[in-house]
Design a protein around this nucleic acid. Structure first.
Lengths: 117, 117
DNA sequence: CATAATGTGTACTATGTAGTACACAGTACT
DNA sequence: AGTACTGTGTACTACATAGTACACATTATG
C-alpha cells in the first residue's frame, strides 16, 4: 500500500498543476505547519502529522479525511468515541464484519439509512 | 462515568476478598509491571497503562478487555486495523449507528451472524 | 540581472507515554 | 518480637510525538 506522504504529495502536485497556489509553502500555511515540516511529511521522512493537521490537509486537498487518516495509521477520534460509548456491541459488530465483503457491509449501511427496523 | 483506576481497584479488591492472591504486588507481577506503578494506576494518579497491560489485566481480573480499554480512552488495535482497511465504509456505518439504540445494533449483529445475505 | 518563490537540510524543543527502581511505613502472621 | 507482606511516595528514565526555526541552494519571474 502507498505511504501517506507520497500520496499527499501526488495530490498536492496534481492540484498545483491545474490551478497554482498549491506549493509546499502555501499548503503548509493553510494547514498551519512549517513548510520544512510538510516537506518532510511528504517524503515520509517523518511520520504523518496529528489528526487535526491531517483533517485540515484533507480539506485543502479535497480528499476524504477518513482515508487520509487510515493511511496515517489512525482512526478519527469521533469514531473512537462512538465505539467507546458502547464498546462491547461495536467491537462485536466490527469483528464480525471483518470477513464480510464490501457489498454485505454496504447492505447494512443502506438498511440503517432506510430505517428498516 | 467511573475512572479506569478506581474501577480496576474495585475488581481486584473484590477478587482478593474471595480468594486471596490479588494484592497489588501479585497482580502487578502477573501483568508485568512494578507494584508502585499499578498502585498509581489504580488511584488514577497516572494515566491508564498500555493496551498490552490492560489486556493482560482484563485476563487476570476476568473482565472484558474492550470495556477496560474503553474506560482507558482506547480502542483495541485489532478493531482499528479492521476500520483502516476499509475506512470509508466502516466510518460511514459507525457514524450512522451512533444514534441507533442498542437493540437496533444488536439486530444487525444477529443478521450478520446468521448470514442472512 | 535582481528578487521572489520553491523545496529541503540541520538543529533544536516541548510534551506525552510508559513505565522502573528504591525506600519506607503500616499491618498481619507465628 | 521478628519476619513478611502490604500499599505507596519520590525520583528518575527512555522513547515517541509533534512539531519549530533558520539557513541554504535552486528555479522561476518581472
Amino acid at each position: 500500500m502507498k505511504r501517506f506522504g507520497s500520496y499527499i504529495r501526488d495530490c498536492r502536485e496534481a492540484l498545483n498543476k491545474e490551478s497554482k497556489g498549491y506549493s509546499v509553502r502555501k499548503v503548509a500555511e493553510k494547514i498551519g505547519v512549517e513548510p520544512a515540516f510538510l516537506s518532510k511529511v511528504e517524503r515520509d521522512i517523518v511520520p504523518p502529522p496529528s489528526e487535526k493537521k491531517i483533517v485540515a490537509l484533507a480539506k485543502v486537498l479535497d480528499e476524504d479525511p477518513d482515508i487520509l487518516l487510515a493511511m496515517a495509521g489512525k482512526v478519527s477520534t469521533d469514531l473512537l468515541k462512538i465505539i467507546q460509548k458502547r464498546p462491547v456491541i461495536f467491537a462485536d459488530l466490527i469483528r464480525r464484519l471483518k470477513k464480510e465483503p464490501d457489498h454485505a457491509v454496504l447492505k447494512i449501511v443502506r438498511e440503517v439509512t432506510d430505517g428498516e427496523w
